[in-house]
Write a protein that binds this DNA or RNA. Structure first.
Length: 1073
RNA sequence: GGAAAUGUAGCUCAGUGGUAGAGCACUCGGCUGAUAACCGAGCGGUCACAAGUUCAAGUCUUGUCAUUUCCA
């Protein structure tokens, strides 16, 4: 019985698609990705990846997702971190761990309030209070959640697996209860206190600003011109400095009414100058010696020399501490009202420099952070003289009601009138401005709550040693140094939208009492109601009579501040699960976390607050491994800027190149090692070319030929064929090295390994094995299948979408992400094989180089190549492979030694091994190296003799160099020997070369004609007489290679011949049969 | 102003104290019925600068400069 098959061949691959279509040669990766995403969504693959590990009772890998503040759409920075947050958990899942990935939202804080103010068209505390705190907070709540859906779609598109449905928000009641529990714990441990701290303050919006807000954009710090004044302070202490006028300098004259001290640098030298003709008359002055030349004119000196001649004595700053001086104003000069016993003296401060002004700094403790610390340490309190609007209070009677900037002028005038001013000048400096109202800020002490981090500093440093940091210098560098210089953490904000400071105070100072609450139960117990909302103003409405007040008149009221939102994000490990009110067991097994990753700035942000709270609350580090990656720059190496348009649009990249292309670009960059990276379209395309396409093409090649052969491959490592064994051994190397790299969070190194592997796979293994696939060699198919299947598992964390498509196309399995990481041990280990094959690849490369230098194209067959290597025996099996690669008729493999090399006309050259010889001969090694390079050496029986020194193994190495010229042979040197290419052409060889040229042309014509690889043709060739003979000799070869069922070769004249061979021309006519 | 990191080819980066490498880009040549590829050759360097330690420094030490980041 005969059947005629008319339907297309059954298609095996891609297996998962159930289609009669084979694989796509050049797919749109973005389209493929969308299909995979839709499949995951439908299949519930992510949930299964966790559930299957849970079912197996697998160990956990605990990942903490830093909550982003979603007040806008995600940008490259978020995407980058997102890829890093996805890659490692995917890898660990494949390694058999259960990795839960719960998303979190940072919802509180000033950024949220700022956005709300912008949208509502109001600004500043008074306007918010007028608008209504309840309404305002309600607005904040909706506005912070506005972008969550957009975030979800971006994150889904980037193939990041995250549990959104079970997310946590810092505004949740449960979350906040855990946060106030933490506050109470810290309070109970004596780590919370209330104090004054100098903060940047906007007098128009009537609020202090956080450091965060000073960094909101580049507009904050702008150049501003201020009046600087140099003021005299006469010494009142007895002794040789009595009556001397200390010169101090400031750019904020308005702070002079609250001058309480002067500061000098301990190691700065100060000069006592007798200025007979100063602007103030015959006086003695004290000024930093280095800055004296800046004040020649005011002090009445002609030149530096005469000023220096007037110096009667010099002092070190450290000798000047404690000297008393006469205050400028007497607003505070009433001991019955103010603690001034330590005021108006010289203090020694490390931060003082001799670079500006006079080297002596005026101190106003309420208006400078350094000032405050120095003065408070010396027993000088912080007195604030300015109200919320930046106006002087009644304490400063003369200037009461004047705004501080307005008061600069009258104050300066009064100083002048009192003879206290010696210089007034304008001064340009970079100065912070309010990012909302653009007004210049002032620094001002405000009441604030603190965590006393300085108390736990040592323990934080100890626990830091238990953390593995990437890059490792962060441990004792970026993070360690930061901890060493830790200051108490101001955790309160005079704002509205945030977790409340859970402190209630008596409103009558005569009956003081402070209650700190750490749970809803405690609040219900004391206030009789259980709060339904921790937000203001609801929480502020909880009041009760002061139990310590027998009169019953005073009331316990909550302090008005809210918590710094960083306190909340730092509470994430326990607050996300409502610990300790719930999930105590869970927390015990999920703390510390195994892995966190954020951009380098978070070293001093989230990583820091996690570490502070974890140390203080649990005496443990919060995380075991922390990656702080670099930042993403625009294509010009500058910060990304919307206005400069210096980076490709995220959605364009997703649509054109796909998410895996972007993931590969970012994850293969040094950015996770702490470096920065410029995002360019070119860079993204390069990743596609180097990784995605070679891998896809390998997959395509396999599928195409397996379909053509109708063969379904199965896993096998049984092939004895050399190339098969080689690629299996290479796969083992790939698995081994990528495992090591990903274990240490080094996706940069892992990517390089994948890239190299893809290179070997496509450009050696597949290229050299093409014929075997054409012939339907089952070993070849099974081997390539086995290698690809394992390789796709290896790349799954790095290219999750494309890997999924290819892996399912091979196996029809559910998902590569549900598979286990491949076991390297299952793959062939054969170091000899790998070494030999690499030697063959080198010989091939060298042979091609010889063809090039001899001017003989590769299509032209040659008679013979001789390959001389050390250990030639094991290479004999590769002769055929090499013959094919180099298009030679014979490969002769011989042992490389002195005899063979000299007989082939090679010379030896001497390389000195400095590492071995150096220690023996010391500095002579330099001379010997020079002589060896110059060729001044001789080989004797006992060793190598160089310029009077005898070298023994392994102090030298002899290598070969090509020496003589021959028209018959070309000689090349390889790392372990040399090769010799017979360049003589015979007529037979030439005619075969001609045939091969012709074949090439025919193949191109087939392709141009749009024929399928299996289409048969009839062929006519027209050429000159001489070529006819040559082509006829090889007509079998030609018809076989080009699938020509009939072939006609004729001599004749042709108008536009295609050139073949050295001189010939040919015309090709073909028709599909 | 302070701290940290980084300075190696045009670009992106490797580089155990032993006499400088890869990929990309560029130029030229070759090869190609999986490939958007590939192969070969060429071009390209005061390893930021300076001192020191050492027989020997890109590598270790110190200083300077530059860039970046973080903190002021």
């Amino acid at each position: 019985m005969f059947l005629t098959v008319t339907s297309p061949k059954a298609v095996m691959y891609p297996k998962h698609r159930n289609s009669s279509q084979g694989p796509i040669a050049s797919p749109s990766f973005p389209e493929l990705e969308k299909e995979v995403l839709a499949y995951w969504d439908k299949d519930g693959t992510f949930q299964e990846s966790i559930d299957q590990r849970a079912a197996a009772d697998a160990p956990e890998f605990v990942f903490y997702d830093g909550p982003p503040f979603a007040n806008g759409l995600p940008h490259y920075g978020h995407l980058l971190t997102g890829y890093a947050k996805d890659l490692v958990p995917r890898y660990q899942t494949m390694r058999g761990k259960r990795v839960e990935r719960r998303f979190g939202w940072d919802t509180h804080g000033l950024p949220a309030e700022v956005e709300a103010e912008r949208l509502l068209g109001i600004s500043g505390r008074p306007e918010i209070e007028k608008f209504g705190v309840a309404k305002f907070n309600e607005f904040c709540k909706t506005s912070v959640l506005k972008y969550t859906e957009d975030w979800r779609s971006y994150i889904t598109r980037q193939a990041r697996w995250v549990d959104f449905d079970n997310d946590y928000k810092t505004l949740d009641q449960n979350y906040t209860e855990s946060v106030i529990w933490a506050f109470q714990q810290l309070h109970n441990k004596g780590l919370i206190y209330e104090g004054f701290k100098v903060l940047a303050y906007c007098w128009r919006c009537e609020t202090p600003l956080s450091n965060h807000e000073l960094k909101m954009d580049d507009e904050v710090y702008r150049d501003r011109q201020d009046q600087s004044v140099t003021v005299t302070f006469p010494v009142t202490s007895q002794g040789e400095l009595a009556g001397v006028k200390i010169l101090a300098w400031t750019t904020t004259p308005w702070t002079l009414p609250t001058n309480f001290a002067l500061a000098v640098g301990p190691n700065i030298e100060y000069s006592l100058v007798h200025a007979k003709n100063s602007d103030l008359g015959d006086e003695k002055f004290l000024i930093a010696s280095a800055l004296l030349p800046n004040y020649l004119k005011e002090l009445g000196f002609e030149d530096v020399e005469s000023a220096q001649a007037a110096v009667s004595k010099t002092y070190l700053g450290s000798d000047l501490g404690g000297i008393k001086y006469e205050p400028i104003f007497d607003f505070y000069n009433d001991p019955s009202k103010f603690s001034i016993e330590n005021a108006w003296q010289v203090l020694v401060g490390d931060y003082v420099t001799a670079e500006d002004g006079t080297g002596i700094v005026h101190q106003a403790p309420a208006y400078g952070e350094d000032d405050q610390m120095l003065c408070n340490a010396a027993g000088i309190p912080t007195y604030v003289s300015v109200n919320e609007r930046g106006e002087f209070t009644s304490l400063i009677g003369t200037y009461e009601g004047q705004h501080v900037f307005e008061a600069n002028k009258p104050i300066t005038q009064d100083l002048k009138a009192n003879g206290r001013l010696i210089r007034q000048a304008s001064y340009d400096h970079s100065y912070p401005h309010c990012y909302r109202c653009k007004n210049p800020l002032i620094y001002k002490a405000v009441s604030s709550w603190f965590v006393e981090t300085t108390k736990v500093k040592d323990r934080m440093l100890e626990l830091n040693q238990e953390i593995n940091w990437v890059p490792d210098h962060t441990k004792n560098g970026g993070f360690g140094k930061w901890l060493e210089n830790v200051r108490d953490w101001a955790i309160s904000r005079n704002r509205f939208w945030g977790a409340p400071i859970p402190v209630w105070k008596s409103d009558d100072p005569n009956y003081p009492r402070i209650d700190v609450y750490g749970s809803l139960d405690e609040m219900e117990r004391d206030f009789g109601v259980r709060p339904t909302d921790f937000h203001r103003p609801v929480i502020d409405e909880l009041t009760r009579p002061n139990p310590d007040d027998p009169s019953g008149k005073s009331t316990m009221r909550r302090v008005p501040e809210v918590l710094d939102c960083w306190f909340e994000s730092g509470s994430m490990p326990f607050a996300q699960v409502h610990y300790p009110f719930e999930n105590q067991d869970w927390f015990d097994s999920h703390f510390p976390g195994d892995y966190i990753v954020e951009y380098v700035g978070q070293t001093k942000g989230w990583f820091y607050t996690l570490h502070v709270l974890s140390t203080a609350l649990f005496d443990r580090p919060a995380f075991k491994n922390a990656v702080s990656h670099g930042i993403v720059l625009g294509n010009d190496g500058q910060k990304m800027s919307k206005s400069l348009r210096n980076y490709p649009d995220v959605n364009e990249v997703f649509d054109r190149d796909g998410s895996d292309a972007m993931r590969w670009f970012l994850m293969s960059s040094p950015i996770l090692r702490g470096g920065n990276i410029s995002v360019t379209e070119q860079g993204i395309r390069e990743g596609v070319r180097q990784a995605l396409l070679p891998l896809w093409n390998s997959y395509y090649f396999f599928a195409l030929y397996a379909n053509a052969s109708g063969y379904t491959a199965s896993p096998s490592m049984a092939s004895t064929q050399l190339l098969d064994r080689y690629i299996l051994a290479k796969t083992r190397e790939l698995i081994d090295s990528v495992t090591l790299d990903l274990d240490t969070f080094d996706s940069f190194a892992a990517s390089a390994k994948v890239r190299d592997f893809a290179e070997v796979l496509t450009n050696w293994y597949i290229r050299r094995s093409r014929d075997r696939f054409w012939e339907g060699d089952k070993d070849a198919f099974d081997t390539l299948y086995t290698v690809l299947e394992a390789a796709f598992r290896v790349i799954a964390p790095m290219l999750p979408l494309v890997a999924e498509e290819m892996w399912r196309g091979l196996t029809d399995g559910r998902s590569v992400h549900l598979e286990s990481w491949p076991e390297a041990e299952e793959f062939l280990q054969d170091a000899h094989l790998v070494r030999d094959m690499d030697a063959i690849r080198e010989a091939a490369s060298s042979g091609l180089s010889l063809r090039k230098s001899s001017g003989i194209r590769v299509r032209q067959p040659l008679a013979k190549i001789t390959v001389a290597v050390v250990g030639s025996d094991s290479l004999r099996d590769y002769a055929e492979l090499l013959a094919d690669e180099l298009n030679v008729k014979a490969v002769d493999i011989v042992e490389a030694n002195a005899e063979t090399s000299s007989s082939f006309g090679l010379k030896q050259s001497l390389a000195v091994n400095a590492r071995a010889l150096g220690p023996r001969v010391g500095k002579d090694v330099q001379r010997i190296i020079g002589q060896a390079k110059a060729g001044n050496w001789e080989k004797l029986a006992e060793g190598i003799f160089v310029d009077g020194t005898l070298l023994m193994e392994p102090e030298y190495e002899l290598t070969l160099v090509a020496d003589n010229e021959s028209s018959d042979f070309a000689v090349g040197v390889t790392s372990s020997g040399f090769i010799l290419l017979d360049t003589r052409l015979t007529p037979e060889l030439q005619s075969e070369g001609l045939a091969r040229d012709t074949i090439r042309h025919i193949q191109q014509a087939r392709k141009d004609f749009g024929l399928d690889v299996s289409d048969r043709i009839s062929l006519q060739l027209v050429c000159d007489e001489e070529s006819v003979t040559a082509l006829e000799t090889h007509s079998d070869l030609i018809s076989r290679e080009t699938l020509a069922s009939d072939i006609e070769i004729a001599a004749g004249q042709i108008s536009a011949p295609l050139s073949v061979g050295e001189t010939g021309g040919i015309a090709i006519t073909l028709a599909k049969k």
